[in-house]
Design a binder for these strands. Structure first.
Lengths: 244, 244, 244, 244
DNA sequence: CATGAATGAGTGTTCATTCAT
DNA sequence: TATGAATGAACACTCATTCAT
């Protein structure tokens, strides 16, 4: 195959994948037909089989170069951010911004691929997995650097992040809610870092030190901390395994 | 129809739904055939159509009485718990415990129903929706009672909860990870309430009051309060919309 | 079976046949289901099989007693009419009047039974066949008695009659045209007996008489036309009812 | 699609329609299966659906080009005939000859299509309707030209013709009677024009010529026939509507 | 006498996929 | 490279009919 041929091949594949993304997003994998895709791509059905081995192959190709690229370019950029929370924010923003921008892809990812057992194990699944890996690494980094609590499994933290992202993205593609996904980035970071419990600020800290004229001797301080309603003092927690 | 007939009908429906749940969980909706379900239920295919109008009808019936009942019994019990966080914990526990106990149902819910546009609008979807509603109400209650921050939309908070639950449940049914879903209840509550940011707890507060039998000078303690990072005094936040 | 039982059986059969007639007339044989008939008869489906051996059996029973009776009572009455044409008119009138009165039966007969190869050979088909036989006999009688031309096969004449009856009856049940079938009785008799051709009156008769010079007297021609019974001198027609 | 492709498509359609005609003629519409047709056409079942949208579509296509063509070529030829009766004879002959030649088509038309409510309204039904229209026009023409009686509605006359044709054609395809349909053409025309009533033929015409002595000269006979109302001078009948 | 319950047998139709051109 | 043409394989669904009660 000539150089030009290879290029042409890539263009055709791109054309088919694009059409498939649109069709799958609109109808789902099973309801969509190769015929639908061919029509959308303005090609004949057999032509699709020139470039892909099966309908599933087309599906699995959707999260292709595109997202691989995205991750590849994002990774170095992450170093621009200071601290794990900021880096995490960078990743979340990137993901949600991507889903917001390409909602057809979001639909395919959330409604079709995510549930597909076969998709895992696919090379293309790596593109997705890498994002998750990145998140995990950043969280671990945050824990190592003392920015994040270490008593919560990084895996679990990541699950909260991914879960929230995917839930809201799914909602978006299913009900086409009006708000932009990007709006959720800060609330997520906020809830994740600080939680939703109301905690008394430092203003509330009352340290009562009563000193009695002492005649010698030394009295241990009254349980001064009794009044130390510093709030949410982390209750002693039992060891727990939070993830696999 | 006689009383017995009605009873019989319910039994048959139950039998079919149970078989369908198993089959759908294992193969997915489209890969599963009515024939599979009939075989599993030890019935003939037409018999299924005596009790259901279509394959989809069978699917949509799965989250039936069972979950309706569950919610109905859970709701009053919720009052046993003190505070919104505890109530939320109750709901989360119930859900995850349910999914853990009936993983076939979990699979059907996470991998099939959740993505199904048609399922929404079904009467049976209400069983699910009620759970979400309950969560929302508890969160609102928590905000009204000053237990939860009011600067995060209750809808968003709920999304974090649901997202985490569904993500981990999906993982469980997809990869059959070994840990029990119930293990995640406390971490979720913990992350949700307190966040993952490291905050100096009271434990860290060191108030050194050194009293010397001394009339002379008095040395203020070393910047003892330095450690008084009672933390997370909520930074002034810019107004933000967190969701609809 | 008791006498009463026999009676009951007949009543049930009648009830089913009546329902079936209605359903078949509306939907055709294949589109109608036993379930439809059972519903219409307010019976359960198996009950139908208590009285009939199959769906087809129900169909073939429709032209039952009813029409047998009709023919049986009509036959003797035919003698009231003078002449074959009048008798034929009697038969035609009876048939069309019957179809007009029971259009459901007409629909079943015209749209379903007439085309059914299996129906022929059925005992019930005789009811129908008898009518045709009667017609044939009357036509033959008309030919024997010099009322009808003998150079046209009586079978063919009968075919004209039956064809016209059935064509117009079919039209009626298919398009529900507004006119009553009975209106067609006289036109049919008229066309059948006299045809539609305008026949040259004597005007066309050219009698060339060449007279030779003659010395005898000359008598004005007799009213030459007197004997010109060129046929079809319109017989005095009896008053006729043209409507239903 | 290429020119050749178009041609091929037509060939395939023809092939399928031909097979379907045979199968439908033999088994009826409902008893015939797509599988039967496919086997007869030596094609796979799906291939039939490449060319037709449904079993019904195949059925409705049967009275296709063929009969459209037939009518189109017949119409101009009609002018070869002198007089309405002759033209009518031409039409009848054409129809019956067609049915005689293609008895499979006749069976489909008589036993299936004629009764099908849905078929009416189909474009293909026009081919059939045109024939009927042609008949009607010829009859009207005959009435206008004084060849046919005007006191019988042309619609009714046509009904006699169509009814007779269809009845005998139906008989032929149902019982496979031995006589050729074409044999019926003349009897039909004969009955239609002159009726079956016995009328005194010309033999009965008595011309009495009395010759008177001649005085020279030769006078053509007076229009002696002036008064010769040789019969069926259509009595003024009240207008009657005999059809729609 | 009546029927609830169950099913065998069958059908039209769809669609991913192949192959000759 | 592209596709018209063809099909194997399946599947949801229907319905007349049976039988135990």
């Amino acid at each position: 195959m000539s150089m030009a041929g290879k290029k042409r091949t890539l263009v055709r594949r791109e054309q088919i994948v694009k059409a498939a993304k649109k069709v799958f997003a609109a109808k789902g994998f099973y309801e969509a037909t190769i015929s639908d895709i061919a029509r959308e791509a303005q090609l004949s059905e057999p032509t699709i089989y020139e470039y892909f081995t099966s309908k599933e192959d087309v599906l699995f190709t959707i999260p292709g170069e595109q997202s691989v690229e995205a991750r590849r370019t994002m990774e170095p950029n992450l170093n621009m951010f200071q601290g794990a929370a900021n880096k995490l924010r960078g990743i979340i923003y990137t993901l949600w911004n991507f889903y917001q921008t390409d909602q057809e892809y979001a639909a395919v990812a959330m409604l079709i691929l995510k549930q597909n057992r076969k998709f895992i194990g696919t090379e293309n699944y790596n593109a997705v997995r890498q994002y998750f890996r990145l998140m995990y690494d950043v969280i671990k980094e945050g824990q190592a650097g003392g920015e994040f609590r270490s008593d919560i499994s990084p895996f679990f933290i990541r699950s909260v992040v991914i879960g929230t992202i995917e839930h809201l993205t799914t909602r978006k593609v299913l009900y086409d809610t009006e708000n932009s996904l990007v709006e959720f980035v800060d609330p997520l970071i906020e809830v994740l870092t600080n939680g939703v419990a109301v905690r008394p600020g430092p203003a509330d800290i009352q340290v009562h030190v009563t000193m009695s004229p002492y005649s010698g001797g030394f009295a241990p301080p009254e349980p001064a901390d009794a009044g130390l309603e510093v709030g949410n003092a982390p209750k002693p927690r039992r060891e727990r395994r939070t993830g696999s």
